[in-house]
Amino acid sequence: MLDCPQTGNEDGLSKPTISDLARAAGVSVTTVSHAFSGRRRVDPETSKRIHALAEQMGYHPSSMARALRSGRNGTIALASSMPFAVAAGPSRLGFLMEIAASAAISALTRDLALCLIPPHPAGKGYASVGFDGVILVEPMRDDPLVAHFEQRKTPIVSVGTVPGRPDIPAVDMRSGETAAMLLDHLARQGCRHIAALIGSAPRTSQIEAEAAFRTLAASPDRLLKLSEEEGEEIGYRETLRLLRDDPSIDGIFAAVDAFASGAVRAAHELGRVIPDQLRIVTRYDGLRAKLSQPPLTAVDLHLPAVAEAAVHLLFDRIEGTSRTVAAELPELVVRQSTAVC
């Protein structure tokens, strides 16, 4: 047991200071600071003694002081230019929210807090807020969020590669392979006239989905590029038009789950029985896919692991390391929208 000298005022209620701890340990204030910050080497035995005394004395380093010394505030951000119409899902528990929940847990294990930035024009409402780094979820080509944070010299990593920016570390979501998996499934289920509903925003997930459809589909002209802003409604309207104009369509590949929800509504309205007369698949296995009637065949993108990888990449980027990693291969989840019972 270490002898801990009395510190503070006479009533014993004041908090011990770094100077109190330095005197108790018989070292300089600078040595104590380095023992907690890790910015300079401190003899292991000395560091151990300092930490033991700090625990006995009830000393805790000031988070504000640490931030001033390191130039960091211990907060990272998660942001996306995807509108809530496609990113949030029912009850706002969609793609972006699932990544945020897992990223927040991963960040805490590294003593970082996660701030979720709701989708809105870059800089609006947070231009004055500083972050140690930011994770961007599926940014577009020339995404204003990239420009905003680069201007502020904020380290960036992305979930999904950034089109035209191989220099930005990313978790590659393997979107081309995912689209090919879904299209192959439709073909194996007997679909010969497949249409595609793909987001018009130039995100890697949509660019690679379009490329896969044009390569693999028997009729690549049945491709619609839809606005993310309109979400389910545009999926509904365009599917109504598609099925009325071309009743031979027997499969729909929706690269955005909000579009898939709209396609299901349209099929029901036209009396097209799913999956007997029409099969529908979508990319993201979220609440929309699970709660749909019938439930939608989708893909498990392993988002908790993706979020963990993104936080790890950002931590490395903050420390000066830059690299891109590939996500685990997504897994097909077959449900009633394509499987005839």
Rank of each mutant, 00 (worst) to 15 (best):
Q56N: 10
A254P: 01
V86A: 07
A263Y: 02
L197Q: 08
T31K: 10
D250E: 02
A196Q: 09
H148D: 12
R241S: 06
T338D: 09
E208K: 11
D245M: 07
G26I: 08
R66Q: 15
K153L: 12
V162G: 03
E233H: 11
C341E: 14
V86Q: 01
R92M: 13
H268Q: 13
G231V: 01
I135M: 12
T204Y: 06
Y59D: 03
Y284K: 03
V340H: 14
L78I: 15
A298N: 04
A147M: 08
V29R: 15
R141N: 08
L314I: 00
I18F: 08
E138G: 00
S37M: 10
L303N: 00
R335H: 05
P202H: 00
V157E: 08
A24M: 09
A211H: 12
A289M: 03
M97H: 14
M181Q: 07
Y126L: 09
D142V: 04
A65F: 10
A100R: 13
S80Y: 03
H302T: 01
K124G: 06
L287T: 06
V333W: 07
T239G: 01
T282S: 10
A307N: 04
S91P: 02
S261W: 08
P83K: 00
I50V: 06
S322E: 14
A212N: 11
A209E: 02
P118Y: 09
E308P: 04
T338Q: 11
Y59G: 02
C191I: 04
S106Y: 00
I198Q: 09
K48W: 04
T204L: 10
A326N: 11
C4I: 15
A201I: 01
D246W: 05
G58K: 04
A52E: 11
H34F: 15
F36K: 07
A100V: 10
K290D: 07
A35I: 08
E55G: 11
S128D: 14
M64G: 11
A170Y: 00
I274P: 05
R279C: 12
S200Q: 14
V325E: 08
V129K: 14
S261K: 05
A212I: 05
S102I: 01
D184A: 13
G176E: 04
P330W: 00
A307E: 06
H148F: 15
G58I: 08
P44C: 05
P294E: 09
E233Y: 06
H148G: 04
L240V: 04
L243H: 05
F149H: 08
E150C: 10
G74D: 13
V162T: 09
